[in-house]
Simulated scan of single mutants.
Amino acid sequence: MTGRRRWSTDEILDAAAELLRTGDAESFSVRKLASALGTDSSSLYRHFRSKTELLRAVADRVLLAAMDGHQAEGDWKQRITALALRLRDAFGGQPQLAAVWGRYASSGTGSRLVMEEVLQALRASGLPDEEIPVRYHRLAVLIASLIAHEAGAGSITPQEQEQGMELFRVAVLGADPARFPALAHFARDVRPLGADRRAAFEELLAAQLARIEAEVAPRRSPA
């Protein structure tokens, strides 16, 4: 009698990534993954101790691919900006995996490469070492949140997008001026969350980096 096929870790992660492309982290389960592979859950738990550990590994593969061939260039702000845009592009075609990364984070080699680059760039900014961990964390939260939001907005179908736009127009243009005076005043200029995502991403990131630069500048000025 032929035994069940033994799946490698990479093959399991490939299958998990494919399920996440057509579903989401909420509906994803080890049982569904095992069924897709034609095996039982226990065989997968030999590779990953939990669903969360598996999801983190899937997200880390995206980070690892994004860092493949990456070369740090420019000043510290250019380095962080280039890295953030590189990560956004990597997750852009895999919106469900962006949501996974934003929710579960990662602890693999890909994550360590990203952390190393950001920490090195922040050290190059002139920040004292004791302030770098806090700044790193704020940047990481901002970048992960922006990527997850942009990817999520980009995953909706054209029909869903049009329905959302219609609901937005009704909610904004139909606002009662007596109850929502500011909204009524700006109604024709306010844009939905999905508009200008790329510009918003870069502007918010630039503002955070400018804040760090402003804190460093006085310390570099001659007395």
Rank of each mutant, 00 (worst) to 15 (best):
residue 94 Q to V: 09
residue 118 V to R: 14
residue 166 E to M: 06
residue 112 R to G: 02
residue 57 A to H: 04
residue 51 K to I: 00
residue 85 L to Y: 04
residue 84 A to E: 05
residue 16 A to E: 00
residue 166 E to A: 10
residue 24 D to A: 01
residue 25 A to K: 06
residue 57 A to F: 02
residue 78 Q to R: 13
residue 151 A to L: 08
residue 117 E to I: 12
residue 20 L to H: 07
residue 49 R to T: 14
residue 161 Q to H: 10
residue 118 V to W: 13
residue 174 G to S: 08
residue 201 F to C: 05
residue 67 M to F: 03
residue 81 T to M: 13
residue 68 D to T: 13
residue 95 P to C: 05
residue 171 A to P: 00
residue 161 Q to F: 06
residue 173 L to A: 10
residue 220 R to I: 14
residue 6 R to Q: 10
residue 59 A to Y: 01
residue 22 T to S: 12
residue 80 I to M: 04
residue 203 E to C: 03
residue 44 L to Y: 04
residue 130 E to I: 06
residue 93 G to E: 13
residue 179 R to L: 08
residue 41 S to M: 03
residue 212 I to C: 08
residue 78 Q to T: 13
residue 102 G to L: 07
residue 35 S to I: 11
residue 17 A to G: 15
residue 168 F to K: 01
residue 13 L to C: 12
residue 180 F to M: 01
residue 138 R to L: 15
residue 144 A to Y: 00
residue 61 R to K: 13
residue 131 E to A: 10
residue 164 G to S: 12
residue 100 V to Q: 09
residue 131 E to G: 00
residue 66 A to R: 12
residue 223 A to H: 08
residue 39 T to W: 08
residue 95 P to M: 06
residue 45 Y to G: 04
residue 67 M to Y: 02
residue 18 E to R: 13
residue 214 A to H: 07
residue 206 A to K: 10
residue 136 Y to L: 12
residue 45 Y to Q: 04
residue 19 L to R: 14
residue 136 Y to I: 04
residue 86 R to N: 05
residue 51 K to A: 01
residue 69 G to Q: 04
residue 34 A to D: 10
residue 101 W to H: 13
residue 31 R to P: 00
residue 72 A to C: 03
residue 166 E to T: 09
residue 91 F to T: 06
residue 108 G to H: 09
residue 29 S to K: 05
residue 215 E to I: 01
